[in-house]
Deep mutational scan, measured.
Amino acid sequence: NEEPLPEGWEIRYTREGVRYFVDHNTRTTTFKDPRNGKS
């Protein structure tokens, strides 16, 4: 039961299956979860 991502964020996966987060607001990507700060 995960809380929803902030507005404008999306979860994607690399070809290796590593989860990362896309911030469409700033057009950046990060491996850090914007909901809780954990990677």
Rank of each mutant, 00 (worst) to 15 (best):
Asn1Thr: 13
Asn1Trp: 13
Asn1Leu: 13
Asn1Ser: 14
Glu2Asp: 12
Glu2His: 11
Glu3Thr: 11
Glu3Lys: 11
Glu3Ala: 11
Glu3Ile: 11
Pro4Val: 08
Pro4His: 08
Pro6Leu: 05
Pro6Gly: 05
Pro6Asp: 04
Pro6Val: 03
Glu7Phe: 12
Glu7Asp: 14
Glu7Gln: 12
Glu7Ile: 11
Gly8His: 06
Gly8Phe: 05
Gly8Trp: 04
Gly8Leu: 04
Gly8Thr: 02
Gly8Gln: 05
Trp9Pro: 00
Trp9Gly: 00
Trp9Met: 02
Glu10Leu: 05
Glu10Thr: 08
Glu10Tyr: 06
Ile11Ala: 08
Ile11Gly: 03
Ile11Met: 14
Arg12Ser: 06
Arg12Cys: 12
Arg12Pro: 00
Arg12Phe: 10
Tyr13Arg: 04
Tyr13Ser: 04
Thr14Gly: 05
Thr14Arg: 01
Thr14Cys: 00
Thr14Asn: 10
Arg15Leu: 13
Arg15Trp: 11
Arg15Lys: 13
Glu16Phe: 13
Glu16His: 14
Glu16Asn: 14
Gly17Glu: 04
Gly17Lys: 06
Val18His: 11
Val18Glu: 09
Val18Thr: 11
Val18Asn: 08
Arg19Phe: 06
Arg19Met: 14
Arg19Gly: 05
Arg19Asp: 02
Tyr20Cys: 07
Tyr20Pro: 00
Tyr20Trp: 04
Tyr20Lys: 01
Tyr20Thr: 02
Phe21Thr: 01
Phe21Ala: 00
Phe21Asp: 00
Val22Trp: 12
Val22Asp: 01
Val22Lys: 05
Val22Met: 09
Asp23Asn: 09
Asp23Tyr: 04
His24Ser: 08
His24Ala: 07
Asn25Ser: 08
Asn25Asp: 05
Asn25His: 08
Asn25Arg: 06
Asn25Thr: 10
Asn25Cys: 13
Asn25Pro: 03
Asn25Trp: 07
Thr26Gly: 06
Thr26Val: 03
Arg27Ala: 14
Arg27Phe: 10
Thr28Ile: 09
Thr28Ser: 10
Thr28Val: 09
Thr28His: 09
Thr29Pro: 07
Thr29Ser: 12
Thr29Arg: 11
Thr29Asn: 09
Thr30Val: 05
Thr30Gly: 04
Thr30Asp: 03
Phe31Glu: 07
Phe31Gln: 07
Lys32Glu: 15
Lys32Ala: 10
Asp33Glu: 02
Asp33Trp: 01
Pro34Lys: 01
Pro34His: 00
Arg35Ala: 03
Arg35Ile: 03
Arg35Leu: 03
Asn36Arg: 08
Asn36Thr: 14
Asn36Glu: 15
Asn36Asp: 15
Gly37His: 13
Lys38Thr: 15
Lys38Glu: 15
Lys38Met: 15
Ser39His: 15
Ser39Lys: 12
